[in-house]
Amino acid sequence: MRVVLAEDLALLREGLVSLLEAHGLTIAAAVDNGPALLKALLDHRPDVAVVDVRLPPSFTDEGLQAALAARREVPGLPVLVLSQYVEQLYARELLADGGGGIGYLLKDRVFDAAQFVDAVRRVAGGGTAMDPEVISRLVARGARDEPLGRLTPREREVLELMAQGRSNASIAQRLVVTERAVTKHTANIFMKLDLPVTADGNRRVLAVLAYLNR
């Protein structure tokens, strides 16, 4: 699996390179600024891009802009955006094209190498990896209103994990319940939110995110 990496701090960049290589991924290019990132993405067409939001030369949201620009050229190009902060505004922009293959995580999530690499692989496979902080804020905001307020606490927990992009198996493992129990919860959630039930995991995540982002 080929990765293009963009991170301006050399220490962190090297750390990420060795982390990803240790887990069997190939680094196609590791760059440290926005224009170079856009070029690398268009030249290498990687399986996934791991991108820091803030990059030189402007030190604003250059990484995000380059990733969005590349996705306009190459629809569905999987991008995992890392940031010191998560902003719902940016999450919305990343999800706006509805194409999937999007990740948006706090940089701290790198601390848990196994989970992080899992998120990279998930995004590369067209899946979604949203930071728990984005999702919990989204859900907290929506929870004041019907019908989100009708969910049981457990269902809300499942909804949050689902919105982060996790599979049923992963949710079950996290909550220490059987997969069947999770399936039951998700069925209830989709019924209460009046969303069409779909077997496809990724479409399910996008539907939930679109619902929360209304």
Binding site: R54, T60, S83, E87, Q88, L89, R92, R137, A140, R141
Partner: peptide, 20 residues
């Protein structure tokens, strides 16, 4: 950060998104 990145309009939009 959004204020630095995008300016006051988007920063206020981000504020609105986070607000209950």
């Amino acid at each position: 950060p959004v204020l630095a990145d995008r300016g006051v309009a988007d920063a206020v939009r981000a504020l609105a998104l986070d607000h209950p």
